[in-house]
Design a protein around this nucleic acid. Structure first.
Length: 1078
RNA sequence: GCCCGGGUGGCGGAAUUGGUAUACGCGCACGACUUAAAAUCGUGUCUCGAAAGGGAUGCGGGUUCGACUCCCGCCCCGGGCACCA
């Protein structure tokens, strides 16, 4: 028998497979389809990395197994060829990047072919081929037309070395991901893609796909969904006293807090009503206009729609007296809310005077009436307070939240008041009484203040929190320095200079400085204003600090230092209030108690110091307190929109032009008169995208691709403009819409663009043309890009989607996966693809590290060149080695010394094939061995446990090697399961054994479950849990038989002699454990 | 800090998911073949012990007839996120 000559064998079969194109997928097969995908390589000048081989081989094994199982398999390959290294090489050498790409892809193709992958080479793609990127541009245009692309002036991360804007994701610890240079800030207009509009679906739909759990977790972390509440904090420059502040004022004389509240009437009966309404310990003295005789209010006028503007009136009195005022006038009036265009409803329902309260129906009608009358949505109404009868009861109606509190007819109890609460039924829309609502005397002032306070507020700040249950512990508010509200209320801020300085400083800070670990928090108080804690009406200071991020949530937080570490740090530093309001249910550690002031309890628990919510469970309180304060449930995401512009040459040009004339036209609708005129003339309909991006006009689809022009220099400019900007002939074009002069967008797309849809290109490739390899492409006609054109791909998308199994690196599980899922979902919404997710299953391989355990890199000189190894050991050996080296999903260091092991295995396989014998009848032992191996290998491939699959085959081969001879029937089946791992040697042996067809066309061997089981099995006998003997058991023995066999065993006898057997545990087919009495 | 993995011989790693820990491979040692070497084949290879036997799966506890596997508390390594309210 000849020696195993891998060079000869591998070359022979690679040529034959290539010539016959036998791994090409059919787009219209009747067979079940299987689409296996690997991440297409970036064709760097360094050539194929051993890591590519690991991933490609794994999917090749699966693809080959699927073919044997009768699937029509699509296993494609291509090149992700736009990118920085190629451009940098072009800058250095002056060689056109397309030329560099062509050389590199050529090298990659050759290397990939030398490894014997069953790729469908006829579908090879290349993202930098204009025939490919015209579709990338086309997809971008669809996003643009749907308003999902928008230009935004923003501070970008700028790498001064690469001279490129970086996405947030490409900045690691403030350094450029590629070159490690410190990233700078620059202002630039950037194209953005609104991926955040898909955040909820990108999160939720992970439930529908079979991704490795850790990948789902990473995606979810990146999207960062969190549920919480949005709560409005009124901001005011009125100053009510807090109880605590009042006691403080005794120490600090000269405190300016008002002590009186003015009732804006001279009617003594009304004043009495008020006085009665306030509790005795309410910290105001209630006075009326009669007490201030020199006030002349005759110049107050009534508005058109309003019987009286109570707010103005209140302010008038406040200005005159310096005393906060409550007006009692009129029964029903509506007041325009000065800040947000809504209304305050001050109303006194003329209730049924017999019962002293409104009926359910009346309440419902009343709210509807108000809303209807003023034609506004309920959301724009604030709430109303009504004093319904002369008995001094306080009722409260909240229009926004559609509920009413009305004092119960029963006399007040010793503890406080009882209110009926009317809630609107969500289904019927009717109002009905819910459980009574208690307000204790001790909280009554809080309650009143809670209700009154908005009569005096300036504005609101929205706050997002996941812990509304801790609201009573919120002792200050923090806005991010970029928050617009700060300039809105600039007039009221008394230390504006200090505030402005702080805003400047944080603006100039780099991301790194702002987020550096262990960095001490800084901030400045906004003096002159206070926020009102909507839960207890308390005044709390408002700060700005750059530990609060503008882009997350509402850009403002309520600080609860007792229950949040960051707030605690800040509060300690600036001496702000700390109030515990949640106690853990169980004291786990002694340090967890309220007695330790430095313990910050961030978990759940039981509320206290929280007014009417005392004793409530924090989970329940989240909802209740949100309701109580008029907040709403809100969901926020960490995910940010995708910065889509790059100031580079080697990328897809963004297919838009900017036209001054069209900009002017698009902006016309801002003037209603012009818009009306235009509408009448039915001219120039203004498209949605033009409203979002005035002046930006899409290049017509039939003009795609917008090809990259030739440039003299690939060097990006220091001004931050792309090299494309220096080609006037290319930049200056006619506007496709108005035919006036216009300029092309000179930014290009990021690397992620081309790879966001490449799995579709493979499917399209059956009938289209994306390759740079011109010689092959002549047979394909070039099609125009359009909605009509893409419709012809519907059938192939329907056939191939979704990708059944996608394997790739962990480094791509966040961005690439998220971006391509986003694009796919968009295309799904537009009706171009049939599935809402692109990939049904996603797995990941571990990194291959160098010998030294470091990452392989040219600079470290520790790169392993696969070519030499393929020549020396053969592709089959390299494939096997990479699959055998360790668990597929784990990182592992390369060790060339170990390749010899799998090479020896293949030689043994080769040698045994020399002693197969058609005559030999295989006995049960051999049959059982083979069946066990088939089972193990079949199952392990599905689990990607290639290392143990190979180990099982090695065990089989070692076994077969010891046999005198082995039957062809047995060995053929073994070679079939080896074939996906080592296709060349298997094909050769298959042929040697006299088979005509290819082994990859043969049917995957089935195993017989009966033969897998051992009829007679050796099991262990333990005494007191220690293995002492082995006994043979057969399948027919029941537990009693096994027990007696074990007890009869000689070895066991030695151990149990003279001692009493307490218990015998028999696990069938596994073990016997004899427990002795101690 | 938070979220994922992981920790088993000289090394890469197995362990039917709670049932004889160290399969398979590398390396090493010895032996066979050979004038010799390579290749190949065979034997051995966690540790203490002459043996009988004991001890070992990062450390410390626990549950169990029985724990690498489950629970509690730590330590270390790798990856991801990171002032995300």
């Amino acid at each position: 028998m000849e020696k195993y000559d891998h060079l000869k064998i591998e070359k022979k079969w690679q040529e034959r497979w290539d010539k016959e194109g036998c791994y090409a997928a059919k787009d219209d097969s009747d067979k079940k389809k299987f689409y296996g995908l690997i991440e297409f390589p970036y064709p760097s000048g360094e050539g194929l990395h051993v890591g590519h081989i690991r991933s490609n081989t794994a999917m090749d094994i699966i693809a080959r197994k699927r073919r044997a199982e009768g699937y029509d398999v699509l296993y494609p390959i291509g090149y992700d060829s736009f990118g920085l290294p190629t451009e940098n090489f072009a800058i250095k050498t002056g060689i056109h990047p397309a030329e560099v790409t062509k050389q590199n892809t050529g090298k990659f193709r050759e290397q990939l072919k030398s490894l014997g992958y069953s790729f469908d080479w006829s579908r090879e793609i290349d993202t930098s081929n204009p025939e490919y990127y015209k579709w990338t541009q086309w997809i971008f245009l669809q996003l643009f037309k749907k308003g999902l692309a928008y230009k935004k002036r923003m501070t970008i991360n700028w790498c001064p070395k690469d001279k490129i804007g970086l996405a947030n994701e490409e900045v690691i610890d403030g350094l450029c991901e590629r070159c490690g240079t410190v990233v700078e800030k620059r202002e630039k207009d950037q194209w953005m893609l609104a991926i955040t509009k898909y955040a909820d679906r990108l999160d939720k739909d992970l439930d529908d796909v079979d991704y490795l759990e850790k990948i789902k977790i990473q995606q979810r972390n990146w999207i960062g969904r969190s549920e919480g509440s949005e709560i409005k904090f009124p901001i005011t420059n009125y100053q009510f006293p807090n109880k605590s502040q009042e006691s403080n004022s005794k120490k600090n004389t000269g405190n300016i807090w008002p002590k009186k509240i003015l009732i804006g009437t001279r009617n003594e009966a009304k004043v009495k009503m008020f006085r009665d309404a306030f509790p005795k310990d309410f910290p105001f003295e209630v006075i009326s206009l009669s007490d201030i005789p020199d006030i002349d209010d005759s110049d107050l006028v009534e508005g058109d729609d309003f019987k009286l503007n109570a707010r103005l009136k209140s302010q008038f009195y406040y200005q005159k007296t310096g005393i906060p005022t409550v007006s009692t006038d009129q029964i029903q009036w509506i007041e325009k809310w000065p800040k947000d265009g809504g209304f305050v409803v001050h109303a006194r329902k003329e209730a049924n005077m017999e019962t002293g309260r409104a009926t359910d129906e009346e309440v419902g009608n009343w709210i509807e009436e108000i809303v209807h009358k003023y034609g506004e949505s309920k959301a724009t109404f604030h709430y109303a307070i009504s004093f319904t009868d002369g008995r001094g009861t306080v009722d409260y109606v909240n229009v926004q939240r559609e509920y009413i509190l009305q004092k119960n007819k029963s006399p007040k109890t010793n503890e406080g008041y009882v209110f009926d609460r009317y809630m609107k039924d969500a289904d019927t829309g009717e109002f009905r009484i819910e459980q009574p609502f208690h307000v204790a005397f001790s909280e009554f002032d809080q309650f009143i203040r809670h209700e009154f306070i908005r009569l005096f507020d300036l504005d609101n700040v929205d706050v997002f929190t996941t812990r509304p249950d801790t609201l009573f512990g919120a002792t200050y508010l923090v806005l991010s320095p970029e928050h617009e509200k700060i300039t809105d209320i600039k007039q009221q801020i008394t230390n504006w200079q200090e505030v402005e300085e702080y805003i400047q400083i944080s603006k100039n800070k780099t991301e790194q400085e702002r987020t550096a670990e262990g960095k001490e928090k800084t901030g400045v108080e906004l003096r002159g204003i206070k926020a009102i804690n909507p839960a207890n009406g308390e005044y709390i200071p408002v700060w700005i600090a750059d530990y609060v991020l503008r882009h997350y949530g509402t850009g403002a937080i309520m600080a609860v230092p007792a229950h949040d570490k960051r707030d605690y740090e800040f509060a300690k530093k600036y001496n702000l209030g700390i109030r515990r309001v949640v106690e853990p249910k169980f004291v786990i550690k002694s340090g967890d108690t309220a007695y330790n002031p430095d313990y910050i309890h961030t978990g759940e628990g039981i509320l206290h110091d929280s007014g009417i919510f005392d004793g409530m469970d924090s989970e329940e309180a989240k909802i209740k307190i949100t309701e109580f304060t008029g907040g709403s449930v809100a969901v926020k995401y960490k995910l940010r929109d995708w910065v889509f512009s790059r100031q580079r040459y080697w990328g897809e040009p963004i297919p838009l032009v900017f036209c001054e004339e069209c900009k002017r036209r698009a902006e016309i609708p801002n003037s209603p008169a012009f818009a009306k005129k235009l509408r009448r003339a039915k001219q120039y309909p203004i498209a949605k995208e033009e409203q979002i991006n005035p002046g930006w006009v899409a290049v017509p689809e039939e003009d795609l691709p917008v090809k990259l022009p030739d440039v003299e220099k690939y060097q990006p400019t220091d001004t931050g403009e792309s090299p494309l900007a220096s080609v006037p002939k290319w930049v200056n074009v006619k506007c496709p819409k108005c035919h006036g002069p216009a300029k092309r967008e000179t930014d290009t797309m990021p690397n992620w663009a081309g790879s966001s849809w490449y799995y579709l290109a493979y499917a399209m490739r059956g009938i289209s043309n994306f390759s740079l390899d011109k010689t092959r492409d002549k047979q394909f006609s070039t099609s125009t890009c359009s909605v009509q054109a893409i419709s012809k791909y519907k059938d192939v998308f329907g056939h191939w989607l979704p990708v059944d199994w996608y394997n790739g690196g962990m480094e791509h599980t966040t961005l690439h996966l998220l971006y391509s899922r986003f694009w796919h979902k968009f295309l799904y919404d537009e009706g171009y693809v049939p599935t809402h997710e692109p990939y049904a299953k996603r797995t990941s391989h571990g990194l291959i590290l160098a010998h030294d355990g470091e990452k392989m890199s040219k600079s470290k000189g520790n790169v392993v060149n696969p070519d030499d190894l393929v020549t020396l050991y053969g592709a089959d050996s390299i494939r096997l080695y990479e699959m055998f080296m360790g668990p597929f999903d784990q990182s592992i260091a390369w060790n060339s010394d170990s390749i010899i092991g799998v090479r020896r295995f293949l030689e043994k396989v080769w040698r045994i094939s020399g002693k197969i014998d058609g005559e030999t009848k295989s006995d049960m032992r051999v049959q059982s061995m083979l069946n066990q191996t088939i089972k193990k290998v079949s199952e392990d491939i599905e689990q990607m446990r290639f290392n143990t699959a190979i180990s099982a085959m090695m065990i089989f081969v070692n076994f077969a090697d010891r046999e005198k001879n082995i039957s062809q029937e047995i060995y053929e089946k073994f070679i079939q399961i080896l074939a996906p791992f080592a296709p060349h040697i298997s094909e050769e042996i298959w042929q040697m054994m006299g088979n005509n067809g290819y082994i990859h066309e043969s049917e995957w061997p089935k195993y017989d479950e009966e033969l897998v089981k051992d009829k007679d099995k050796k099991i262990a006998v333990q005494v007191n849990g220690k293995a002492r003997a082995e006994i043979m058991v057969s399948e027919t023995m029941d537990e009693k038989d096994i027990e007696s066999a074990a007890l009869k065993n000689e070895q066991v006898g030695k151990w149990i002699k003279g001692r009493k057997v307490k218990k015998v545990i028999v696990v069938k087919g596994r073990i016997v454990n004899i427990v002795l009495e101690s």
